[in-house]
Simulated scan of single mutants.
Amino acid sequence: MKLHIIELKKMSDFLRIRPVWDRMLEQAVTRNVALTYEWAYASWKRYAGFFDVRVATLWEADTLVSAIPFVAKPARGEGCRGTAVQVLTEIVPYSTVSEDAPVLECFFAYLRRKYADLLKVSFQEVDASCYGFAALTDWAQSEGMPFFIYKSHESPYVEIRTDFSSYYLTRKKKIKNALRNKPDKLQALSPFRIVSYAKESDIRRGFQQLLEIDCESWKYEERSDMASREGQHIFYETLAEEGAKRGMAELWLLVNEREPVAFEYNLLFEGKVMAIKWGYKAKYAPFSPGVILRLETTKQFFERGFRMIDLWGSKDQFKTIWSDDHFDRYAVHLYANSAQGLSLKRQDEAARNSAAAPSAVELC
Score class of each variant (00 low, 15 high):
205 R>G: 04
341 G>I: 08
38 E>L: 03
233 H>G: 08
64 L>N: 02
254 L>C: 10
77 G>T: 12
219 K>L: 06
313 G>E: 06
179 L>W: 04
292 I>Q: 06
108 F>W: 12
208 Q>N: 13
41 Y>D: 02
312 W>D: 09
318 F>R: 02
164 F>I: 13
111 L>R: 02
342 L>M: 14
190 S>Y: 00
239 L>P: 00
148 F>W: 00
39 W>K: 03
64 L>E: 03
15 L>F: 09
14 F>A: 00
186 L>C: 05
177 N>S: 15
113 R>K: 15
301 F>R: 00
347 Q>A: 09
277 K>L: 11
36 T>L: 07
233 H>T: 15
297 T>D: 04
191 P>D: 09
209 Q>C: 09
98 S>C: 07
240 A>S: 07
82 G>F: 04
339 A>Q: 12
248 M>Y: 12
38 E>C: 04
205 R>W: 07
44 W>V: 10
144 G>T: 10
222 E>H: 13
205 R>M: 11
199 K>Y: 05
99 E>Q: 11
247 G>Q: 09
237 E>L: 10
98 S>R: 08
48 A>F: 14
258 R>F: 07
352 R>M: 02
105 E>C: 06
246 R>V: 11
167 Y>E: 06
126 V>E: 00
143 E>A: 14
310 D>S: 11
74 P>F: 13
39 W>M: 07
284 Y>W: 13
267 L>S: 10
55 V>I: 15
237 E>Y: 07
194 I>L: 10
114 K>H: 10
36 T>V: 08
240 A>T: 01
167 Y>N: 08
153 H>A: 04
125 E>L: 11
271 G>I: 05
227 A>I: 14
154 E>T: 13
266 N>F: 02
330 Y>L: 10
178 A>F: 02
154 E>H: 09
265 Y>P: 01
245 K>F: 07
173 K>T: 14
362 E>L: 14
130 C>G: 02
149 I>V: 14
156 P>Y: 06
106 C>K: 11
91 I>A: 14
151 K>S: 07
307 R>W: 11
24 M>W: 07
351 A>Y: 10
191 P>N: 06
80 C>L: 06
296 E>T: 11
67 A>D: 08
47 Y>R: 04
206 G>E: 07
197 Y>A: 05
253 L>Y: 08
96 T>C: 03
256 N>E: 13
4 H>T: 10
44 W>D: 06
68 I>H: 06
145 M>L: 15
351 A>P: 01
112 R>Q: 08
336 A>Q: 08
73 K>Y: 15
308 M>G: 06
38 E>P: 02
320 T>C: 09
342 L>P: 00
